[in-house]
Design a protein around this nucleic acid. Structure first.
Length: 803
DNA sequence: CAGTGAGCGAGCTTCCGCTTGACTT
């Protein structure tokens, strides 16, 4: 048996480290935390120094008993969890739960998984740092108290099953407030002047712009008119060098942002793919807030850059973290081997790997060098000067491999399409010919809505949440129904363009789409309702600086300058008082709004959140005649819907006639307007107003859809017409009655036999097999099905609950 | 004795951070 048992948090890490150490060491993983507060309300005794009740959750029982056994057999147990607050607590929980002995236990730490780093760590073991452990307990207890006292307030005052917490409630607040900022934003129009000049020589035309804009069309028109007779000349030429530095290698948050911008991945997808890369040994750990690279990594990157691009492209760089809450227990995210420019894996993994490789390599490369030229151009009839800028790259440096994308909101002042292109050779005093000049009406832009990734960025800036929780938090606030991620169509908007060419000024009106959104975060009515309630009654908790404030106190605890129970005492007493006070005195939260009076019935029209979501209602609850209801549609909210929009909702669903002796109904659903006929759904073509659909049009749409469905069928099996091969959205699949079957990779579609279909149908996990057989459980909840292996545990749990 | 108001029933939901599978859709 091994003399030494070394415990780390991640099994992939354990495997790597085992390779570095000799056979004297057995390396195992705790799979993160092994203990947590019990789920019940008595987990913390607030009257008795916040004494906690911990338990080993059922899915950790096996790990704990194995570690216990191995620890007993080992001479020395090395606790090698991460070097941060949570890691220290994991070590302490292991020490306590496994029943380790003080003299047989050593605590070690390392920030990078390299052989020298580990050997060095083993040479300098220490004891568990109980100040750090206490800081973690304070964090854990505070989060539980906040979450488990606030949530029940919401159940009572808003709706059951809702949740609130230090992190999620602030995330929702950010989205709600951004939405309000956008709603109250007034776009201001101004006219932007762009001129195209030429020097008289072929292919030597370029663009210049007036730095200032005109607020009024008249002013812009006057400028263009003044320019008809004007002469133009270069008054000033300035050339200056510019440099651009590469970004630091990825952290969890920056990886999520770039994968979102460049690859269109959700934050959850990014983490899933990164996890696979990590487990396959392609990249270092993906949950990190550090931009630091190990010495071996810096050397590895240097070797690769010298080999692939030459010395001129290399520059050794050390990065420092910007976010204050960072705990830096790991390295930055980087490829394990810089020599692998790419890997062979699933396409999603390859793309993410290449992104990580490029970013890490670029971070050790030299800066890109530019020469920027700014030319000022005088207009003889006006005082203003036009500006032309050109930029040429003198040396590409890191741009040879990597160029970071910009956020939408990094350029939100005014619509802009300044492209820095090449200028022809110019001289001061040189006169220029005007090819064309335009004055285009542009509008100031509202603040950008959050994407999942830009929300993560904001949370990180505020020090809220950790790398391991960004993705789950984003999921939670969507699962609770506080926010939705969706597309919005936007509205057309007219703008004017004045053009001066061939000596006269002409005006045209053009149309652009505004407010088009893709994959953005929008608050729901329930999200707004909960947020406003929390902001009104628990301002301190949903304050953007709350986390930063308590983090400072956690740091003091970690340094041994503060008692963790004192800190909690100071926080909890007033907080709990607010909870009690709110439960007792606060009104039920409601956002009911009266919109007006229905001209037909003379009854009031109002909007509110109902059992199944936001609704409009004509008539009052206590009327003799029952009120009429309609649900709000995608994009409509209680706060902003108008009387006219609300009344429109009652016009649908609408019958549009009969076809094949069945009624046709037009309505708007989750995916847009549709016709329902004989329990089948037919989408309306874009641009057709559902209110205008005639019987003839509806029949036409149904027939067209049927025809298209027929065209999708590749083959029908002779043995059974219910079985057919169809062309689907992602390629061919087999339709077998109500089952949709995947065709296994590499199968020749033409060679599929009916026997194959029967076999696949049998193997299909979704197959509607004999469900009723054998299952006699009284509570058919999701959990009972999922936890077959832990039947024992659930029985003990119910037993403890009874007492 | 009838009507009214208050309380109870009986079980559920929920936090944040650290880790992977094992599930279903």
């Amino acid at each position: 048996m091994a003399k030494n048992l070394l415990i780390v948090e991640s099994p992939a890490k354990a495997k790597t480290i085992e390779g570095y150490l000799g056979s004297d060491f057995l390396v195992k993983s705790s799979y993160g935390h092994i203990r947590d507060l019990v789920k019940t309300d008595d987990a913390i005794d607030t009257e008795n120094k916040f004494k906690q009740k911990y338990e080993v959750p059922s899915d950790k029982k096996a790990v704990v008993s194995e570690l216990k056994k191995l620890a007993k057999e080992a001479e020395t147990v090395w606790l090698a969890s991460d070097e941060d607050r949570e890691g220290e607590a994991i070590s302490w929980h292991l020490f306590d739960t496994l029943g380790l002995k003080e003299d047989k236990t050593k605590r070690i730490v390392f920030h990078e998984i390299t052989k020298p780093a580990i050997l060095k760590a083993i040479e300098s073991p220490r004891k568990i740092d109980y100040n750090l452990v206490n800081a973690q307990q304070a964090r854990r207890v505070l989060d539980r108290l906040v979450g488990f006292e606030l949530s029940p307030v919401l159940w009572r005052k808003v709706k059951p099953s809702l949740s609130a917490g230090r992190v999620q409630s602030v995330a929702v607040r950010l989205i709600v407030e951004r939405e309000r900022d956008i709603n109250k934003f007034n776009a201001e129009a101004s006219f932007k002047i762009v001129a195209i000049f030429n020097t008289g020589k072929a292919r030597e035309s370029f663009k210049a712009e007036l730095p200032q804009r005109f607020a009024k069309k008249d002013e812009a028109e006057k400028f263009l008119n003044d320019c008809i007779e004007a002469a133009y000349s270069v008054t000033n030429l300035e050339k200056k060098p510019a440099k651009r530095n590469p970004s630091a290698p990825f952290t969890t948050s920056t990886l999520q942002q770039e994968a979102s911008r460049k690859l269109g991945y959700s934050v959850a997808r990014t983490m899933q793919v990164a996890q696979r890369l990590y487990e396959a040994g392609h990249i270092t750990y993906m949950r990190t807030d550090s931009v630091n690279l190990s010495d071996t990594a810096i050397q590895g990157a240097q070797d690769e850059i010298l080999k692939a691009y030459g010395e001129k492209y290399h520059k050794k760089r050390q990065y420092k973290t910007k976010s204050s809450g960072a705990q830096e227990a790991h390295e930055a995210i980087r490829p394990t081997y810089f020599a692998n420019h790419s890997i062979s894996a699933e396409p999603s993994e390859v793309r993410l790997y290449e992104l990580i490789w490029k970013r890490a390599i670029a971070s050790q490369m030299s800066e890109a060098e530019f020469e920027k030229t700014v030319a000022k151009i005088a207009v003889s009839t006006r005082n203003e000067e036009l500006t032309a800028t050109g930029e040429i790259m003198k040396f590409d440096g890191f741009l040879k491999v990597y160029m970071e994308s910009l956020d939408d909101d990094q350029d939100n002042t005014l619509d802009d399409d300044t492209d820095n292109t090449l200028l022809p050779p110019l001289e001061v005093g040189q006169s220029l010919n005007l090819t064309e000049m335009t004055a285009t009406e542009r509008f100031s832009r509202p603040p950008a809505r959050f994407t999942e990734a830009s929300l993560v960025k904001k949370l990180e800036e505020l020090g809220i949440g950790r790398p391991s929780t960004y993705a789950p938090t984003i999921s939670t606030i969507q699962n609770r129904g506080y926010v939705v991620k969706e597309d919005r169509d936007g509205k057309p908007r007219d703008y004017k363009v004045l053009t001066l060419s061939s000596g006269s000024v002409a005006e045209v009106t053009k149309t652009e789409m505004t407010g088009v959104e893709r994959n953005k975060m929008f608050p729901t009515d329930i999200g707004v309702l909960v947020n406003d309630f929390l902001v009104e009654h628990f301002k301190g908790i949903v304050d953007f600086n709350f986390t930063a404030k308590v983090e400072r106190e956690f740091d003091e605890i970690a340094q041994g300058n503060k008692e963790w129970t004192d800190m909690l005492e100071n926080f909890y007493r007033p907080f709990h008082h607010e909870v009690e006070d709110t439960l007792e005195n606060a009104e039920r939260a409601s956002h009911e709004r009266e919109l007006g009076v229905d001209p037909v019935s003379g009854k009031p029209v109002s909007v509110r959140v109902g059992r199944f979501g936001p609704l409009v209602q004509i008539g009052a609850q206590d009327d003799e005649e029952k009120p009429v209801f309609a649900s709000l549609r995608k994009g409509q909210m209680i706060e902003t819907i108008t009387f006219e929009e609300a009344m429109e909702l009652f016009k649908l669903p609408k019958k549009v006639g009969e076809f094949e002796e069945k009624e046709m109904t037009v309505a708007i659903g989750r995916f847009g307007p549709y016709i329902r006929h004989n329990s089948a759904f037919y989408s309306l073509p874009k641009g057709l107003d559902p209110l205008d659909v005639t019987q003839e049009q509806a029949i036409e749409i149904i027939k067209e859809k049927r025809q298209k469905d027929i065209e999708k069928i590749i083959r029908v099996f002779d043995e059974n017409p219910e079985a057919q091969i169809e062309n689907g959205r992602w390629g061919p699949f087999v339709r077998f009655g109500k089952q949709n079957l995947k065709i296994p990779k590499g199968t020749d579609v033409n060679a599929i036999t009916y026997a194959d279909v029967l076999k696949w149908a049998e193997e299909d996990p979704k197959a509607p097999k004999s469900k009723t057989a054998g299952k006699t459980t009284k509570s058919p909840s999701k959990k009972t099905g999922a936890k077959k292996t832990t039947a024992k545990k659930s029985s003990t749990k119910t037993a403890t609950k009874k007492k």
